[in-house]
Amino acid sequence: MSVALRILDDGAWLSVNDQRRVSVSELWRVNAPGFCECELVDFLAEGFTEVTAADNEVAIETYGQCIRCGVSGVPGHLPVGAIIQGRYRDYDRENVVLSPVGRADQP
């Protein structure tokens, strides 16, 4: 079964099969040493620019800011959930550390 993944409303949220799943304004802890000087990026998601899926993992290219040091930018494609047997499951994004995944090319 194919899964429809799209970013809508000017990058405000991720839709998976026509359901809103991830919204901007979430705070994530991101392991992206090149992004800023902080040990972990304390990342405010401000806008989504692209969604990709590889090996059932859904990742969003996200623009945002480290609210600890103020560096803004795109730390890469951040994994937000997975598709398991055709159904999308959110990662527990409030409590895990997200690591950017290599650019997956085909959604």
Partner: peptide, 25 residues
Amino acid sequence: PEDETDAWLERFKWWGLYHQRNGQE
């Protein structure tokens, strides 16, 4: 239709209707 929700909500904007944010479906 479930798989057309995104499309219709996008189109409704043309008639001045914005779907409110998550939690207010």
